[in-house]
């Protein structure tokens, strides 16, 4: 196992210490969310890459539990909002009510209540909220600012987690492409596959009471105010060679023009499949995530495995298909990502 070979041994030690804390963080979260090691690893990568995450999955697979456990382990304050069809941007920013004295009052809403220290903002069922709310969220994610009470509020440590379920489509608003592109990752959460985890989830009374379960997670494992600094150090400390740069570009080409790369998927016309997307921002996110993964694995260089481990979550939601194939997106996007890694020669 290689140690980070940074120029400064102090910095290397500091990063190694943070890596240990990251593993502790993963371990703490894994205590309450069974059988989701891959999802937890991806969310840890997002935390250390300072990226916003959209969780997607069935009802009741533990998305909210997972996020609450993470919020507790990261530390700092968190707020949570449920998306509804009549939720308006002002509902996030202001809290309008009748005061004790019987006079109308406007107080700071969920977003502003905790001030600039807010570290995690949950948005449950984001696709139930209207496009106006998406727009507010877009700015919050991209710039970390919100305008309210006549001035700008900054959230330097904020990370947005959103979730949506794919079961219903009624009374939902599909996220615009721009908003989806702002999300660092889109993670699919599925019910755990192994029998032991499933049995435990059903029969172990520990998992029946969520608040008690979450209370079992150690708090403040990571110092949320330092995360930005750590993220910067990781990005500077992990080395990307020319070979990996060429490989990344080849992957990008393969995803944008799969027919030219010789990728064939059954039942899909490859020359018509991909209409656009896979933005340069997406590719830079990909490399960011790969660097964090390399660091978590204890390496000081990106290798193709790092790209492969994060590729579907970081890239799949940025690739836009021909409308004919959009209905089969999940299946085709997964197959396309797999095929790209099976086709593009590494290194």
């Amino acid at each position: 196992m290689q140690v980070l070979a940074g120029s400064d041994p102090m910095l290397a030690d500091w990063l190694a210490d943070w890596r240990t804390r990251a593993h502790v963080f993963e371990h703490e979260v894994a205590k309450v969310v069974l059988g989701q090691e891959r999802v937890i690893r991806l969310l840890t990568i997002a935390v250390f890459a300072r990226g916003h995450v959209l969780l997607e999955g069935d009802v009741g697979v533990g998305k909210t539990t997972l996020l609450r456990a993470m919020a507790r382990a990261i530390g700092g304050t968190y707020e949570r909002v449920e998306g509804t069809i009549d939720l308006m941007p002002t509902d996030l920013v202001y809290d309008a009510r009748i005061g004790d004295d019987g006079r109308p009052r406007v107080d700071p809403g969920p977003l502003l209540r905790r001030g600039g220290d807010l570290s995690i903002f949950f948005f449950n069922e984001i696709n139930r909220a209207r496009p106006q709310v998406h727009a507010l969220l877009l700015r919050l994610m991209a710039e970390g600012t919100v305008a309210a009470f006549g001035r700008e509020h900054h959230f330097p440590h904020l990370q947005v987690f959103a979730d949506r379920n794919r079961v219903e489509r009624e009374e939902t608003f599909e996220l615009p492409a721009a908003a989806r592109d702002r999300f660092f990752m889109e993670v699919q959460v599925k019910a755990p596959a192994d029998a032991a985890s499933r049995r435990a989830l059903i029969f172990d009374p520990r998992f029946h009471h969520m608040d008690q379960l979450i209370a079992g997670v150690a708090t403040d494992v990571l110092d949320h105010t330092c995360l930005d600094q750590v993220a910067r150090a990781i990005q500077n400390g992990v080395h990307a060679s020319d070979a990996i740069a060429a490989y990344t570009v080849a992957l990008w080409d393969a995803v944008r023009a799969p027919d030219a790369a010789g990728i064939v998927l059954p039942g899909v016309r490859m020359d018509r499949l991909v209409q656009g997307g896979a933005s340069p921002r997406g590719m830079s996110f990909l490399v960011r995530a790969a660097r964090v993964r390399a660091w978590l694995e204890g390496r000081d260089m990106i290798v193709p495995e790092d790209l492969r481990a994060v590729f579907p979550e970081v890239m799949a939601h940025r690739i836009f298909f021909d409308p004919v194939y959009e209905m089969r997106r999940e299946e085709i996007a997964g197959a396309l990502c797999r095929a790209a890694f099976e086709t593009v020669p590494a290194p």
């Binding site: 990307a240 070979a243 990996i244 260089m301 990106i302 290798v303 290194p347």
Partner: peptide, 9 residues
């Protein structure tokens, strides 16, 4: 191969 292509050369 990792060292050659992605590491020190």
């Amino acid at each position: 191969s990792r060292v050659a292509f992605f590491g020190q050369g």
